[in-house]
Design a protein around this nucleic acid. Sequence first.
DNA 1: CTGCTATATGTAGTCATGCTATATATATAG
DNA 2: CTATATATATAGCATGACTACATATAGCAG
Lengths: 123, 123
Amino acid sequence: MAAKKANHDAIRGSLDLMVLSVLAEGPQYGYRILQRLSEVSEGTVDLKPGTLYPMLHRLETDKLIKARWEKESTRPRKWYELTKLGRSRLAEQAREWEHYAKILRQLLEPILRQAPGCSARAT
Amino acid sequence: MAAKKANHDAIRGSLDLMVLSVLAEGPQYGYRILQRLSEVSEGTVDLKPGTLYPMLHRLETDKLIKARWEKESTRPRKWYELTKLGRSRLAEQAREWEHYAKILRQLLEPILRQAPGCSARAT
DNA sequence: CTGCTATATGTAGTCATGCTATATATATAG
DNA sequence: CTATATATATAGCATGACTACATATAGCAG
């Protein structure tokens, strides 16, 4: 129990959004998406292959992205890019994310304004 | 399939945070937490009893909150309040949430800056 | 040439979260 | 006396995200 988790709960439900956002920068293949997410988050987002690839397959099934194999490179890569549906869905979800982020920030504001006292003993 | 979901993916993984935040305002009982969340979100967060109560039980098991029955009111209510552990965990998770929110906002910024064109046909 | 590391994609199996649906019980309003 | 709001709770399910593992090749160090 209490097994260490790769990523924080806070990004649960936002992983699709993260991946789609990376693809909004342009077509990309899986391995690079992992690197890109690690890069923009300075290592704090540590998506594992076993999480990403099934995700990409799901997004493809949902027609939000489309894939194409590239065989000519040093080694085969599967490039993904947003479909039109994916692009509009991303925009929509981005706006919704902002909406909820605003609510949460409002709730968390008083907590964050306090001193970050780190004592943690059970009551 | 594609059954309507009560809440948006964006808040997945942040529900604990929301509930703990409400309890940071002071002790509260379940039914009121639901109302409070609906209130601060202007109805957009629509937590169901079947989601909240098991959650409260879990948070109690984890010693983040503690419960006490109130039998003297018009009808029995179970009041919850943060433990010290819960309070520090909340502060910690709030800071972590902010961290990831910042990363996401950074990723979403270029998307949100664009016009919200809503055409959604598959490519 | 051998073995290690980085690149690159993938599946299997598990667990926790959040959902719907349902159950129970009482106070209050019509 | 019936319907609605209050108040808590459980059962069962879907799925997201995880760990662990499998596969394969390029490139480099020795």
